[in-house]
Write a protein that binds this DNA or RNA. Structure first.
Lengths: 133, 133
DNA sequence: GATTATTCATTGCATTTGCAATAACTTAGT
DNA sequence: ACTAAGTTATTGCAAATGCAATGAATAATC
């Protein structure tokens, strides 16, 4: 049953190559676009939470977020209660670019599953959901 | 339908983190173990073929293979017909370590799909196969 | 058969990556 | 209240990464 884990890996790497190429012009290569999308959709996560939600190493995530803050895509805010936490929000530039990121993700996603019927797509979605927990 | 592409990405990154940690002691981190497994199973691919089969950048793949050759895991052979090609084979060390890599991949794979029934696993496998081409 | 276009391996270089370690802070246990 | 254990963000550093470019070999086209 290796095919599953192998196919999943190949699809991810292929997708990342294309998406990074697409968003390099915006300074959002190296998976940086992921952070903008996720932060837009779920604002206020702290750094570690954000990193865990996309399964990326925390130190890598930290540096990418820093860069995105410097570039005006994201914004950090200290948590009021817990002084260790820094929560992440989109800044103007991040909000402005979200629709484009979203559209491209949709396009990529649609293209990926274009060989499947609608029922098969639903099936696949449900099966994968069982894997992530 | 984003969930599909997002879940697939998260699963891949999580899997890679664990597998790299497992095989660092053998000098097979950074996805290096993938090359040994694939080469063992399909000997004689040329470098570009091998890279494409796992969807990894060719220059990265090239350097990883070089390192694996230096470390005694793989072996390169010039193609007789086409002087551009260098074909990849496992060396002693690669063959020796294959069973362990294989077992770990099986373990990881089994654990990943452990929430699914056998029929669901078959379904998932078939659905994913449709995505890769 | 000469020329053009592809395809391959390889290198240069700047950037990214991630393990390991640290300091600040919070939680749990006594 | 105090201590120990766990969690967070952060930095250092060596190694990996990947885009761009090059040269060599082959394939395609004229």
């Amino acid at each position: 049953m290796f095919e599953i884990i192998r196919d999943i890996g190949a699809i991810t790497r292929q997708t990342e190559i294309k998406t990074n190429a697409e968003f390099r012009r915006l300074g959002l290569a190296n998976n940086a676009f992921i952070y903008v999308i996720r932060t837009y959709e779920k604002p206020g996560m702290f750094l570690g939470q954000l990193a865990d939600s996309v399964q990326i190493d925390r130190t890598t995530a930290f540096r990418t977020v820093q860069k995105l803050v410097d570039n005006g895509y994201l914004r950090l805010e200290d948590d009021a209660k817990d002084k260790r936490l820094r929560r992440v929000y989109v800044a103007q530039k991040g909000a402005a670019v979200y629709p484009e990121l979203h559209a491209f993700e949709k396009h990529t996603s649609d293209r990926l599953v274009s060989q499947l019927t609608v029922e098969e797509q639903t099936q696949l979605k449900q099966l994968l959901a069982k894997l992530v927990y």
